[in-house]
Design a binder for these strands. Structure first.
Lengths: 260, 260
DNA sequence: CGATTCGTTGACATGCTTCAAACTTCGTGG
DNA sequence: CCACGAAGTTTGAAGCATGTCAACGAATCG
């Protein structure tokens, strides 16, 4: 089950997985490897499958499973890849680069999350995405998506993405450092747990700088706030591992949270 | 051309327009009034038309044109209306209510903008929307949208909405009060002008409090910042009318702005 | 094992919020 | 049309949360 990574020199490349039972039935599809999803164990099942095939069986779903080494980009702003992706294992950060070189982190994606939708309407991706650890992703080309029958699953996904964004906007506009950090942690705990049951310990895969860029805070503020949380006995932070002892307290500090 | 409003006592109601040439061809549609779009002069043409009918002529587009008095809600969070709307004339504010009663303004919509998409995936609307002035809107029910052929226009629209949200996130996370106000004004000027050519004078239809809630600032900060902008000679603010004398200066203060 | 990246902690500066009060505009009813 | 009250806006003073600068410490990687 362990992922073996060949450390290629190319930074932007995705490494095709050669495992899996490729159903070699001759569909007249482009040069994309069709793979089975045996090794994919996303909670709630594969989202990609729910998206487009609901009512149009003439559309053969082409999926690419890829393994990415930590730090490798899936795509960068300006890339005309025009595909969307599902995280199968690992985690991904999406961000936009600003003139001054600062990056605004837009989101962190965990297994089951869909990303890359920003290329849906425009001719290229606007944000960039990078693997925060060794990560397996599933790719679905967006070309040919228009004028296709899109199931309710697709609309749900868009809607979820919008809600998530709105939640972040709400947080950035109205919460102080404590509220932001607490909200962030609550979110991560909830999303990490299986079917809605939060776990009590997670391992953050992003740097403090990433968290700061996401929450609109200085890295020092992130560090200090986490320490205060720890000193209060509410949780325990050891490097990137976070244990909660009083989740309700964390919820209280987080304040208003939009329901998912 | 002037809109005549009957001041009904109901707050949440939408007032059906009885003008226009309703093409009375007997489509077996629900009790929604089918109206022509003669009186609609949105720049770039009607967006609703571009969305779903591109490749599926079997789907009869049902549209409702409504006139709303200032302060009337189009929908509220929790409403299961499940429709999306286009602003034909006037302006609309969308917001989410927080536990403490504070409202987070998510967006302002001007003629041509589409809103109400948050109900697409869920069973009801999550945000609320209210007319900032006497406003004409066009309504398209979302029920029956799933499993429909969606044109590229629909995907473009979603994508635009996402980009707009990301832009706001970027602003809230990384800009100071000056940058936020300048960005906001630049955005409003650009969106008000015809086909991308900014005008040099606009009338803000929202209160200072709305702007503050949108930008994540205190109302006093909004007021003071506008005054400093005015004192610098860059622009002139008289109540809600804003004239720019040095748009480039405003752009410079706004800093990084995501291209639309 | 050294170098680099990442994280923590302290001192200080400042931009924003909060509180308070006056002023202006708007809406409604006399 | 004016008067009055409510709502919206402006301005000042003071407090504080967060950013900035700087230095040290810890972890990771080759």
């Amino acid at each position: 089950m362990a992922i073996q990574l060949q450390n290629t020199a190319t930074d932007n490349a995705v490494i095709p997985v050669t495992s899996g039972v490729g159903s070699g039935v001759g569909y007249a599809q482009p040069s994309l490897e069709v793979l089975s999803c045996y090794s994919c164990n996303i909670k709630g099942g594969c989202l990609i499958e729910k998206l487009t095939i609901a009512h149009d069986h003439s559309y053969q779903l082409v999926k690419n499973k890829k393994v990415l080494a930590k730090g490798k980009h899936i795509f960068r702003g300006g890339d005309d890849t025009k595909a969307m992706y599902v995280v199968s294992r690992g985690s991904v950060k999406s961000y936009m680069l600003m003139e001054d070189g600062e990056e605004q982190v837009l989101n962190f994606y965990l297994p089951g999350d869909v990303f890359g939708l920003d290329a849906m309407g425009s001719h290229c991706h606007i944000s960039s995405t990078v693997a925060l650890e060794n990560t397996t992703i599933c790719k679905l080309p967006l070309s040919g998506l228009q004028n296709r029958v899109l199931g309710q699953g697709f609309l749900n996904m868009i809607s979820d993405n919008m809600l998530r964004d709105h939640n972040l906007m709400l947080m950035l506009a109205s919460k102080d450092a404590d509220g932001r950090l607490a909200s962030f942690l609550v979110d991560m705990f909830k999303r990490t747990g299986k079917q809605g049951h939060p776990v009590n310990a997670i391992k953050l895969t992003m740097t403090r700088q990433d968290i700061a860029n996401y929450l609109g805070l200085a890295i020092e503020t992130v560090s200090r706030t986490l320490r205060r949380f720890q000193d209060s006995g509410m949780l325990d932070v050891t490097q990137r591992k976070v244990k909660v002892y009083d989740f309700n307290c964390l919820l209280a500090i987080a304040g208003t949270q939009v329901v998912y």
